[in-house]
């Protein structure tokens, strides 16, 4: 995806969101100018977003200057990190804190260049233990109870 296409896609996405906001606001009572209802402000915000998105769309078509960063340049590492963070969120309510934390730590350490599987596992275990001690024991944070049983 080149920068111009990305700019166009972003403008269209915001236009859709703005139009969606207008559509949903119209379903809310708007009242009168003297007694405005809950739909008035979101309607104005939706209109602002739609109008600004259209301006962005025009600029994306006309503008020739490249973006500062390539959109998908070296995106593999951030993508792996996003998957690891999402996996943490999916697993946390199912298996509790320790396993997702270990998994997240191992992946993050690898993404940021730590070498050696056993070293990664050891560091991940230490960080997880420290997090349990700090958050669960000292600060009393209650992590979700696991719903999966082994």
């Amino acid at each position: 995806m080149n920068s111009r296409t990305a700019g166009l896609a972003a403008a269209v996405l915001f236009l859709v969101i703005g139009s969606g906001q207008i559509y949903m606001s119209l379903a809310l009572p708007r009242g009168t100018l003297a007694e405005p209802g809950p739909g008035v402000f979101p309607l104005l915000v939706g209109a602002l977003m739609s109008a600004s998105s259209i301006a962005c769309l025009v600029l994306a078509i006309v503008e020739r200057t490249p973006l500062e960063f390539g959109l998908l340049k070296d995106a593999a590492r951030p993508a792996v990190l996003v998957v690891a963070l999402a996996a943490f969120l999916v697993l946390l309510p199912r298996v509790g804190f320790i396993l997702p934390s270990l998994l997240l730590q191992v992946v993050t350490l690898q993404v940021f260049g730590m070498r050696g599987v056993w070293r990664r596992l050891a560091v991940a275990a230490v960080i997880t233990a420290a997090a349990v001690l700090l958050f669960e024991t000292l600060l009393g944070v209650q992590f979700p109870a696991p719903t999966w049983s082994f």
């Binding site: 915001f14 969101i17 703005g18 906001q21 915000v45 939706g46 602002l48 977003m49 600004s52 998105s53």
Partner: peptide, 8 residues
């Protein structure tokens, strides 16, 4: 657009 997104 960012202002509108935040307000939305």
């Amino acid at each position: 657009v960012m202002v509108a997104a935040g307000l939305a």
